[in-house]
Design a protein around this nucleic acid. Structure first.
Length: 124
DNA sequence: CCTTTGACTCACT
DNA sequence: CAGTGAGCCAAAG
């Protein structure tokens, strides 16, 4: 080995960048059905509440992982900010409704009630 | 290597 | 009460 093997190939990161991203995916994967969380909540759980944007980046990298329910991750307002990044944008709210989450005008209804806080649930 | 963007959030005006 | 600005960190160009 010389210094850095940046030739990953198919997967861009993952193999070498398993810090923040994998942590985000691990939390997102633990989101129960019918529940939703926010980027800041996950970031806060990871101890990087200031990096809520990075959580979104992690979701983008996870786009190829069907095991990561990115549709359960929304912004602080409960709005489907990332719906535009789904295969069909409508797919996000469709999945949420499918799980029993009511979505109105691209915003999760009763978001506060279905809000799943990893810092509270996983910290237990 | 430096610049720009990006699925956010908080705070101030 | 609503809109705009700045902060944040990392990856892609």
């Amino acid at each position: 080995m010389h210094k850095r093997d940046k030739s990953a190939g198919a997967l861009p990161s993952i193999q070498k960048t398993n810090s923040f991203f994998q942590d985000v995916w691990d939390v997102a994967r633990q989101i129960p059905s019918g529940r939703a969380t926010s980027y800041g909540a996950i970031a806060a759980y990871l101890g990087a509440k200031s990096s809520a944007r990075m959580v979104g980046w992690a979701m983008n990298a996870v786009h190829n992982f069907p095991d990561i329910p990115a549709h359960r991750v929304v912004n602080r307002n409960g709005m489907l900010s990332g719906k535009a990044h789904f295969s069909p944008p409508e797919r996000m709210e469709q999945l949420l409704k499918k799980e029993g989450i009511e979505v109105k005008d691209d915003v999760i209804v009763n978001f506060k009630e279905i809000f799943w806080n990893p810092t509270d649930e996983l910290s237990l």
